[in-house]
Structure formats: structure tokens, C-alpha cells
Design a protein around this nucleic acid. Structure first.
Length: 955
DNA sequence: TCCATCACG
DNA sequence: ACGTACGTGATGGAG
């Protein structure tokens, strides 16, 4: 960062022309740009936009555009099938290329082509030359991931911006993290193993992305993997041995060669002013008026696609350590010298504790503890972490607390003696800080710490900031472990827990087995890293307009979920046991019938064996036999239902499936998870896993308890109130997602139906089938219901046809009729996709994003998926936003009113409460009101509430 | 560890 | 020409 040279830094951009042209072309393929002469100008415009943007925004000192050379490359000689699946170049691209070349020339940018080599070889070679010539920054501009193998500290990938979203720079750390490798050269090993369908690189069968990463992590290279194939097991060993050569060839094909005989002439790559006359003529001919205005007049400032909203709340003036006198609390030192704005651009090697200045202190005397507490109470925000004996909050015991309020400086307070009373005493000592309402508490997955401390009678006070949730809003579909976050955003590798407590085993050590002096660095580091992550994430969230969502929804939801989990749900284990026996009786009986029909015994639960019995032995299906993608017979619900008329055994198998599912997943599993202390099950709600903003529930999953079938419903009878003085109260949003669709689309017909309180599926049926509401029959309503679901999911004729069991033609007619009647819905769906194409993300009413980076993919299937996501994600996500707000307000209200009612479950559009009988009549209208008004829409919200002695009754 | 299957919204 | 409804988690079987 200390640049002492007089010369300005040299910055080279190398563009992969064909990759960018293809991407540009397909980005416009859905609504092509045709000029008055009938020419499809999408590719030219997209490419030129990209070029102009990089020139204006990145201001390179040097630039070159590389095209694939003519003739076949050496790769085709090695492997004739190479890129054989590639379709011929679309005609529109063929006509675009001469124009693109002229535009590049008008910009005075050299075009680089080498016969017999592809652009990636040329770019790789030139990038390496440039680095050797001392260029400070070299960017390979391409959407192609193969280039990852070329990335170094100086050479990075520049993934171009498209239509308003910002560009992305992939540096060394990104690449290593993404492929989970140690050296970028191993990218070729990964690609060599897993193959690449688009280039027709075969790879090794049975090895996909996951396996490839794991194998390369273990063996380092394809060659070494083959040499050690004796260590592999079964089919995998067989495949690696049989396809060893194919694997090596694949690696070779994926390897970019950086020894292309091309001279490196920096002067030739120098940027210079464009030939404006030529550009004017070209843009005129192509009818690029806006572009011409941007390029040829003044250089206008680009407006950002997102508004930057200032951070809300108090201007924090965090006391720095400098003013404090105690020697312990010295001046701050940082883990890295990196400023926030540099963090995501700078590639650095990842550093560890030993390489970085820090002051971590073990606080192990009463005097030091008192002093620490005094300082804690002076702060406005503190990150803290609990060290415990395990991850299960119900059984884990506290081992120590760490705190940090200045980067690089942290404090660890161990529990003085290893006993519960000492832990309680320590917690009590720090209670004034922990319960302080004025201090912001920062943590990574802070719900865990809240729950641990709750067992010691602490209710954490003050606002919360969870770095895990902050990152969840920034990158919803990535992982949010602290270690990954530290590597990505701080270029720092924290001490691993394994280093401290040893590998997993039967004699697994816990924190309590390690001397506090050794735990101290680890614990301090966690609090320190968490604080630094907060400082990195906050401005990013502000820039994307996500701070409000974090501070007003996600962070306040944390203590609510902690309470919901802590309360738990009582399960009637006796009833479960009885039902298990009953189910077992049915299962044995059905098994006998199936074996009789099959003429032999076999494992009904094995899709493989079942397929062989049904299709080989019994010859069912009359030739029309479906296979799964792995080549086995498909025996899913759909297939078996089709076979049912042909042979009664199919229906028996379906029934067997249902019963064994109920037994193993619910009836047997749930009682085992009942906590001995209180007779309740305590699920975990994960707030940072779904792509849309919903919660998920694990261990056990209480969001998929059966209800749709009679035998399944029985299970809900075992979900009971805590005691005889309580009842369960269940409150459901009615049709929340369709109401959101009505609000988003402002469709008059749909809004009217909701305002009048008409059954929405009947209403839809009446419109679609053109009959009066009164004459809508069950069958019409059923079909309309499926259509309504389809609307929320981003409808497709094929999908609807499948669900309705009708032909595709009829499905198309129904959809057409729907869009005729609900034209605003159709417009909204189109607009959603168009918006997502520009932004490459979709957002909810509160600004929660889901990135849709494949929305402009040229792979039609992938693009189709992503387009449906563009419609579904805002709807599903807004529903999630709404119920989260309701949960926070209801929890808040129950506390303020000091009521005994407890929220005990959330199931996406339903909340369940365990309520004292005498409170029921009082709480119901309030809960309804709080749910209805959580986020008012232009259509009324409806909430249905029921009560009962078990969850089934409460519906 | 992956796959197929199926439970829920 | 292709292959499709959206979002989850747990299970048993097979490699």
C-alpha cells in the first residue's frame, strides 16, 4: 500500500471477446433489440456497453481485446469431441462481429488473435507477461470461471457489469475459497475430475463438484489421486482407475496454456483517445443514441442502481482506548491494516493470529474482572462470545466469556472453577453489563449466546447486532460461518476449534478440558473478529439499503426465536408410543400382502430392489418405464400412482411408504428428542439458511409435521399444552402469498375478490372458466387452486399440466384464460423478470434480496428456473418479512403485558402459542390484530385462530 | 456422502 | 430444442 514510485500504477484490462459477446447476445435474447434496418444489435450494444463502462469506471492505462484464433486448436487434436456439443454460432452474432471489431478499432484498442489458440490462452500469456513487467493490476475480463486458474496476487478476474448491477472482481482469496483449494492451479484438477458439460470435457463419472473438491483437498491433484486410488473405496475406486486417462485428458483440456508465442508490447496496449468521428458514424448506423450520448459528450457520472440510505440511530462515538489510563487497556491495534473500502478488492494471503498485532488478555483475578466490567459499562457497543462445553444449548455449560470493543484488543474471562456455581457467580458479576439496555451487543450467531445465558437467568439487554444475519442479508445463498467470513472479508484465518480441542472422536475434549490460558486467544479472537466483521458489514448493508431490515427485523427477531426455542413444545410420548404400535401393525400386514403379490420377500424401502421387482419381475408399466437421472427405475409417488390401476401392489407400496415415513420420521423420532428436564422438544430455528428469507426448523423439524392425510394428522394430537391449565392457540395467515401477489400486481380483479372476502380459489375458477360464482363446482375449484399456486411459483404450462393431470394444451388454455382475466398479474410477472434481468437480483417489500445471477444465462433450463425465482422470491420473502414483524410485535406485547402466554412455533404462515386458559379470550383479538397489521397491504389480511387441547384441534 | 423419496408451507 | 412448477429437512439405502 505504500507506493513510492513516481510513475502512476499501470492497470491492464484483457477482454475475452467471444465470451462477452455471447453473454451480451443472450442477455437480450428474450426481448431482442432490433434496429430499423432489422438488425439484431443486442450483442454489439451489450459488448460496447461493457467496454465503455470499464473504460469510464476503471480507467485502465492499458487494454486489449482477445478473440479466439481461427482454425482448430491443439485441444481438438488431443480430443476430437472438444466443444463438440457447442451449437453453431447464432447468425446474429456472426453479423455483429464485424461491427464489434470496428468499434474496438475506433476506440484505438488492439485486437489480439493467435491462430490455433483460444482467447483464454492468449489472455493468460499476456497477463503473466504483464505481471512480470511489473504491472500493478491486471484484470482478465470474462464471465468464464476457467480463468480462475490464472489468478495471482496481481492478476484478477473482472466479471463485467450488466445493465446496472455492479461488476465483480474475483481475487486470489475468492478463487481459493470458491474451489476450496490451496493453489489456483488446482482449478484444473477440479475441472478435470468433475468435467464441464458446456465444453464437453468428460471428467470422471460419478464425480461431481462436491466430490471433486473433497478429493483434491485430500490428494492435491488428479495425478496423485490416481496414484493413490488404492485408498478409495468401491465404485469410486473403480471409476478413478477405469477413467484415469480420461481424467488426465480432461485436466489437460481445462488447462489454459500461458506459453502462447505472442510478443508482449506494453506500448501497443496503451489506452488513448478514441476516434470520435468513426464512433459517431458507427453508433449512428447502429442507432445507439443513448450510448452515443454517454460516450461522445461529457463523461456523465454513473448513477448507482441502489439508493444509499444513511445509517440510522445515534451517532456512535465509541470511546477509544487511548483515553483510558489503566495499563491493561492500551491503544488500539488492528488485526489488519486494511480499511473497509479496501477489504473486498485487495487480494492478500490470509493471515493468522501469529502474524498480526493483537492484545488479548486473560482476565483471571477478581480485581481484573472488576476493572473489565467498569470499562465494559463505558462502551456503547461491545462484541461478546460465550465459550461452552458443547453446541447443544440444553446441555452445554458455560466455560468463559470474551469481550471486544476495539479491533485487535480483547478480553477473556474464564469461569474460575469448573463448577456450575462458579459459572453462575461469574455471570451474575457481569449481569450489569449483559442486561444493560443501552449497550449494543454484537455477536456471531448470537441466539446461541442468548440461550446459554438464559439458562443462567440472564436476559440480554440492549439492541443486538448479529454478524451472521448481517451477512445473510448481504449474500443470502452463501455460508455464514465465522471462519469463512473472516477469510473472505478480513483475509484472516482464525484459530480452528479443532486445533484447540482436538479432532472429533469418542473422547472428544471440550473447552472445559483446556487450560484457560490456552482458550483465551481463541475466545478473544472470536470476539475481535466479530467486531471487525460488524464494521465491514455495516457500510455494505447501508449501501444496499439493508440496514433497516437488519436492525428492525432480523436482529430483533433473535431474542424472540431464542425464547420460542427455549420454551419448547410438549409432546405426549405415551400417545406416540401407542400410535407407533398401531402403525407397526398396519405395516406388517401390508408387507405380507406386498410379498405375496411379488412372489418373494425383498426390501420395500430400497428403490433399487423395488424397481427390479416391479419392472423386471412383474413387468409392470407396459414398456413405458421412467428412469431417474442415475439410470435406476423411478418409483416415486407419481409413477406408482400410474401403476395403481394395473396392479394393486402399487397402491400397497404407496401405503407402506406413507406408514413407514410417519413411523420413522415422526412417531419414533420425536419422543427421542424430548428433553428430560421439561418433557418438551426444543427445535432450532435457523434464521440464515433459506434463499428467500423464511425460517427453517431442524432437530427436529417442526415445520413439516403431517396434516394432509388422516393417518398423518394423528401425529398432531401428540402436540399438547404444557399442562392442564393451558391450551394451544394456532393463528394462520389466510392466503398470505396470493394477497401479496394482489398487492404487488395491483390487479383489480384479484384485489376486489379479497376485499369482498370471497373464497379466492372459487373466485379464480369463476373467472377462468367463465361461470357464475355460484356454479363453480369442486373440480373447477381444484383446478383454479392449482393455478393460483402456479401463479405464486412462476407458472409454466408443463408444471400446471402435470399437477392437474391434463394435457399441456388444456393447461395452456387455462393459463391464457387466467392472464386474460388477471392481466395485471401477467404484466407484473413480466415486469418482475425484466427487473431481475437488469439488476440480477429480486427483492421483497422490505428490500431483502435474492441474487439471481443466472437470469441472463444462455442455458434455457437454468434461465427458466431463475425467472420463476424472480417471481416467487419477492412473494415468499415478503410473506416471511411480514410474519417476522408479527412475531417481534407479539413477543414484545406479551412481555409488556406480563402475560403467561408463550409463542412456541412458527410454520411459515402460522404461529402457535401455549396459553393459560384464562388468557385465551384476551390474547386472541390482540394476536389477530398484530398479525393483520404487521405490514398493511392494499388488500385486507385475514388471520384464522383456533384453540384446542392439541395442535390438531387448534386448527 | 449422495440419492430418491416424502413430510410441510 | 430443451425440460420445468417455489421453498425447506429427515430418512433409509447404497456406494
Amino acid at each position: 500500500m505504500t507506493d513510492t514510485t513516481a510513475q502512476a500504477p499501470r492497470k491492464l484490462f484483457l477482454l475475452d471477446a467471444f465470451a462477452l459477446i455471447y453473454r451480451a447476445h443472450f442477455a437480450f435474447s428474450k426481448n431482442p433489440r432490433i434496429n430499423s434496418k432489422g438488425m439484431n444489435t443486442g450483442a454489439v450494444l451489450g459488448f460496447t456497453n461493457t467496454l465503455v463502462e470499464v473504460l469510464q469506471k476503471e480507467k485502465p492505462t492499458h487494454i486489449g481485446v482477445c478473440f479466439d484464433g481461427p482454425k482448430k486448436t491443439f485441444r481438438h487434436e488431443q480430443f476430437p469431441e472438444y466443444k463438440a456439443q457447442r451449437q453453431a454460432m447464432p447468425e446474429d452474432i456472426g453479423t455483429a462481429i464485424p461491427y464489434i471489431k470496428k468499434i474496438i478499432e475506433a476506440f484505438h484498442i488492439p485486437i489480439l488473435i493467435m491462430e490455433g489458440f483460444e482467447a483464454d490462452d492468449v489472455i493468460g500469456t499476456l497477463a503473466r507477461h504483464a505481471e512480470e513487467h511489473g504491472f500493478e493490476e491486471v484484470y482478465m475480463m470474462t464471465p468464464d470461471k476457467d480463468y480462475c486458474q490464472l489468478v495471482t496476487e496481481k492478476v484478477k478476474i473482472y466479471r463485467p457489469a450488466f445493465m446496472g448491477n455492479s461488476a465483480e472482481i474475483l481475487d486470489l482469496a475468492h478463487v481459493l475459497q470458491r474451489f476450496e483449494i490451496e493453489r489456483v492451479a488446482q482449478v484444473t484438477d477440479i475441472l478435470g475430475l468433475q468435467g464441464d458439460a458446456s465444453d464437453n470435457i468428460p471428467g470422471i463419472p460419478g464425480i461431481g463438484e462436491k466430490t471433486a473438491k473433497a478429493l483434491i483437498q485430500k490428494y492435491g491433484s488428479v495425478e496423485n489421486l490416481i496414484a493413490n486410488s488404492h485408498e478409495l473405496k468401491g465404485k469410486q475406486q473403480e471409476n478413478v482407475r477405469n477413467f484415469a486417462e480420461q481424467g488426465l485428458l480432461s485436466k489437460e483440456l481445462a488447462t489454459i496454456h500461458i506459453n502462447v508465442p505472442i510478443p508482449f508490447e506494453p506500448e501497443a496496449l496503451c489506452c488513448s483517445a478514441p476516434d470520435e468521428a468513426k464512433l459517431t458514424a458507427l453508433f449512428d448506423e447502429l442507432e445507439f443514441r443513448q450510448l452515443a450520448a454517454r460516450v461522445l459528450k461529457t463523461a456523465p457520472a454513473r448513477t448507482s442502481a441502489t439508493a444509499i440510505s444513511p445509517a440510522k440511530g445515534k451517532k456512535s462515538s465509541v470511546p477509544t482506548g487511548a483515553g483510558h489510563q489503566a495499563s491493561l487497556f492500551a491503544a488500539p491495534v488492528g488485526i489488519t491494516e486494511m480499511g473497509e473500502e479496501e477489504a473486498d478488492v485487495l487480494p492478500t494471503t490470509r493471515r493468522t493470529l501469529a502474524e498480526v498485532p493483537h492484545q488479548y488478555h486473560l482476565i483471571d483475578s477478581p480485581a481484573l474482572r472488576r476493572e473489565l466490567l467498569r470499562f465494559l459499562l463505558l462502551q456503547q457497543e461491545v462484541s461478546f462470545d460465550t465459550e461452552t462445553t458443547g453446541l447443544d444449548t440444553m446441555t452445554a455449560r458455560l466455560v468463559g466469556l470474551s469481550f471486544c470493543w476495539l479491533p485487535g484488543e480483547a478480553y477473556y474471562v474464564p469461569v474460575p472453577q469448573n463448577n456450575p456455581a462458579a459459572a453462575q457467580a461469574l455471570v451474575d458479576e457481569f449481569r450489569p453489563f449483559l442486561e444493560h439496555e443501552g449497550i449494543l451487543k454484537i455477536g456471531q450467531n448470537i441466539k446461541y449466546d442468548l440461550t446459554i445465558l438464559k439458562h443462567y437467568g440472564i436476559r440480554i439487554g440492549g439492541p443486538l447486532f448479529d454478524t451472521m444475519l448481517a451477512h445473510y442479508l448481504l449474500e443470502p445463498d452463501m455460508r455464514h460461518n465465522m471462519d469463512v467470513l473472516a477469510e473472505t472479508y478480513l483475509h484472516y484465518t482464525p484459530v480452528s476449534i479443532t486445533e484447540l480441542i482436538g479432532p472429533k472422536g469418542k473422547k472428544q475434549k471440550t473447552m472445559a478440558d483446556i487450560p484457560p490460558a490456552e482458550v483465551s486467544d481463541y475466545a478473544c479472537e472470536d470476539a475481535d473478529v466479530t467486531l471487525q466483521l460488524k464494521h465491514v458489514f455495516e457500510p455494505k448493508l447501508a449501501a444496499l439499503g439493508l440496514l433497516k431490515l437488519l436492525n428492525e427485523v432480523e436482529n430483533p427477531l433473535v431474542p424472540v426465536l431464542a425464547d420460542v426455542e427455549y420454551e419448547g413444545v410438549r409432546i405426549d410420548s405415551g400417545a406416540m408410543g401407542d400410535y407407533s404400535a398401531e402403525l407397526q401393525g398396519y405395516i406388517v400386514d401390508i408387507e405380507k400382502q406386498i410379498f405375496a403379490a411379488a412372489g418373494q420377500e425383498f426390501n420395500i424401502g430400497s428403490p433399487k430392489q423395488l424397481g427390479e421387482i416391479l419392472f423386471d419381475k412383474l413387468q409392470l408399466g407396459g414398456g413405458k418405464i421412467k428412469k431417474t437421472k442415475t439410470g435406476q427405475y423411478a418409483t416415486g409417488e407419481e409413477v406408482l400412482s400410474l401403476l395403481a390401476p394395473e396392479n394393486p401392489v402399487a397402491a400397497l407400496i404407496l401405503e407402506h411408504r406413507q406408514l413407514t415415513k410417519l413411523r420413522s420420521t415422526y412417531v419414533e423420532a420425536l419422543p427421542q428428542l424430548v428433553c428430560e428436564m421439561d418433557g418438551r422438544v426444543h427445535t432450532s430455528f435457523n434464521q440464515a439458511v433459506t434463499a428467500t428469507g423464511r425460517l427453517s426448523s431442524t432437530n427436529p423439524n417442526l415445520q413439516n409435521i403431517p396434516i394432509r392425510t388422516e393417518k398423518g394428522r394423528e401425529i398432531r394430537k401428540a402436540f399438547v399444552p404444557r399442562d392442564a391449565n393451558h391450551v394451544l392457540v394456532a393463528a394462520d395467515y389466510s392466503q398470505i402469498e396470493l394477497r401479496i401477489m394482489a398487492d404487488f400486481s395491483k390487479d383489480a380483479t384479484m384485489i376486489e375478490a379479497f376485499r369482498q372476502g370471497i373464497d379466492i380459489h372459487s373466485s379464480t375458477a369463476s373467472k377462468v372458466f367463465h361461470v357464475p360464482l355460484e356454479t363453480v363446482d369442486g373440480e373447477m375449484r381444484r383446478k383454479a387452486k392449482m393455478v393460483n399456486f402456479g401463479i405464486i411459483y412462476g407458472i409454466s404450462a408443463f408444471g400446471l399440466a402435470q399437477r392437474l393431470g391434463v394435457g399441456r394444451k388444456e393447461a395452456v388454455e387455462i393459463i391464457d384464460a387466467y392472464f386474460e382475466e388477471f392481466s395485471a398479474v401477467k404484466q407484473f410477472m413480466d415486469a418482475s423478470i425484466n427487473k431481475a434481468r437488469e439488476l440480477e437480483y429480486a427483492e421483497t417489500l422490505l428490500g431483502r434480496r435474492r441474487y439471481l445471477r443466472d437470469i441472463n444465462s444462455r442455458n434455457a433450463t437454468l434461465r427458466g428456473f431463475t425467472e420463476r425465482n424472480a417471481i416467487n422470491a419477492p412473494i415468499q420473502g415478503t410473506a416471511a418479512d411480514i410474519i417476522k414483524i408479527a412475531m417481534i410485535r407479539i413477543h414484545d406485547w406479551l412481555q409488556r403485558e406480563k402475560l403467561g402466554t408463550r409463542m412456541i412455533l412458527q410454520v411459515h404462515d402460522e404461529l402457535v402459542f401455549d396459553a393459560p386458559k384464562e388468557e385465551v379470550d384476551y390474547i386472541i383479538p390482540h394476536i389477530k390484530e398484530l398479525m393483520i397489521n404487521a405490514l398493511p397491504l392494499s388488500v385486507p389480511m385475514e388471520v384464522e385462530v383456533g384453540t384446542g387441547q392439541n395442535w390438531l384441534q387448534a386448527h
